[in-house]
Nucleic acid binder design. Structure first.
Lengths: 289, 289
DNA sequence: CCGCGTGTGAACATCCTGTGACGATTGTCT
DNA sequence: AGACAATCGTCACAGGATGTTCACACGCGG
């Protein structure tokens, strides 16, 4: 493993609030003075950052896996709008702060509507730029309420966010980062069907291109590991043409007759544990192993 | 309503289009001119909004269940910072846009650091205020966005958008994607008759060519599956020369004793369905099979 | 009674997913 | 630095599920 270094910062489905420090920022600008001051400040904050002086294709920005981007639209010339639109379309979760020279209200409105998160007019104080970037990034992390309090369990598996691992009978499944993020995302959906596009955008951070099989492949890897450790259960269900649904379902058939009444089962706690929606009534969990 | 269909039209993978409409905004300001213009604009947008002219306790704001708040800190006087801090602490998900008179960089930075999402300096154009509020709200809606999934029921069937499935007595009908979209569309029409062309254009996304039987075929498949799982009910009714209407109707003659009480019958939808004869009087309900 | 719209079943074409393997990339260890 | 291992993303293929079209039977409406 040892994956978790940069793991959570970008595109984290349920990031840990702790890692507010590690941020990847890029600044696209030509004003050397501005860049210099800003860079120094970013250094002191310990934010990983990168300066781009020339118009970078939107696709290239996507590959940088940024948390936020500060951009002077002037650098991009006339195609700035198109560029901005494409970028926002591809990375809905990227924080974009436009920091540019004098502009009209209409321009600012247009930029914000296209997907920019903030718009600062030069000249401006670098400290304010920093503060606005922070503000944008702060808003981005959703899971404010979802701290790593409760380990999720379903069927035989237990998903521990604090360990970045899933376990069956205390034995780790040895999930990789992506695999874990996937199972965590699915399990957190509480039995709802998640569409491929949504899974992709929440795990990878940008929008999926048609024909991408990444989600399928990782679902397969997950299923393999789940099946190996918990053969009598099915967890990930395919919904053809839509996506996947996570729900623990036992393969043991109608074995309730087998369950001796002598063993008192804590139905309440058990039911809560099951992620399987309240329906799927015949959960019958004869954990007779 | 009809999540999946509308979602389809705008190619939005996860976003429920309807959610963008329901916004609750409050404006805390004393500048009557500003308020007036802003209010008018908010009205036209259809956003539910409320104007507060006097310093409202932070707790009171909490009770308003807002999506966003536009506030002139000047109204709050010297306690503005404390007020802001408390509010942000209590409602981390509330979008807060400070819109106030001249300020120093330090003040703006402080406000943003305390939790404000944006800071606009007056005088400013109301359209920009709107755009910035939208930008702030846009980011926020992801996490809770998918809560409005209310199971729709009619007769014995229950349509669950979160599972892309319909159920009868908790047993799935195993509908395919198109079948589900169709039943969802029909059911959402609340008993109105939908013309073939409309059904087609809303499910397929483009206009139907004359002679296309796709809708008929899918109606048939749906009827088959419905009949198999719920034989004592009729759901989809043909209106000759027009289209189809969805309404649960029991075949049991007044002997609803048969109807298992476990599932409440949606009488309302049924009644509405009977009345709905929008098109030329010849309703003549040929639903005799 | 005729014309047209609809129900029905099946054949056909298409799309979608499961699967295994391969190269690319990243990070670690020596 | 270089080799090595793990992980990730893409590809091609196969099988199956799904969507579409067609021909024919039937009933409605005029």
């Amino acid at each position: 493993m040892t994956d978790s270094t940069t793991a959570r910062d970008e595109a984290a489905p349920s990031g840990q609030g702790s890692a507010s420090a590690a941020l990847r920022i890029a600044v696209l600008d030509r004003d050397s003075g501005f860049i210099q001051v800003l860079s120094k400040r970013l250094d002191r904050l310990g934010w990983e950052h990168r300066v781009l002086a020339s118009p970078v294709p939107a696709d290239a920005v996507v590959a940088m896996r940024l948390s936020a981007l500060v951009v002077d639209l002037a650098v991009l010339g006339p195609q700035a709008w198109e560029w901005l639109e494409r970028l926002c379309g591809a990375l809905p979760d990227l924080g974009i702060v436009v920091c540019t020279g004098p502009s009209t209200v209409a321009q600012r409105v247009r930029g914000l509507r296209l997907g920019a998160d903030d718009w600062i007019t030069k000249p401006c104080h670098p400290e304010e730029v920093i503060a606005r970037v922070q503000s944008v990034v702060r808003r981005r992390r959703r899971p404010s309420g979802r701290t790593e309090t409760k380990p999720l369990t379903a069927g035989e598996v237990e998903i521990r966010s604090d360990r970045f691992q899933a376990f069956v009978n205390e034995a780790s499944l040895d999930l990789t980062r992506r695999e874990f993020e996937l199972i965590e995302l699915l399990a957190a959906a509480e039995g709802r069907v998640l569409e491929r596009e949504e899974i992709y955008s929440r795990l990878w951070g940008y929008t999926m291109v048609r024909g991408d099989r990444s989600v399928d492949v990782f679902v397969r890897k997950l299923r393999q590991k789940l099946e190996k450790s918990s053969p009598r259960w099915r967890y990930i269900h395919t919904h053809f043409g839509i996506g996947y649904r996570f729900a623990a379902e036992s393969l043991d058939v109608e074995a309730d007759v087998e369950v001796p009444a002598s063993i008192p089962v804590d139905w309440d706690a058990r039911d809560q544990g099951e992620l399987a929606g309240p329906h799927e009534g015949r959960e019958l969990t004869t954990d007779s192993l």
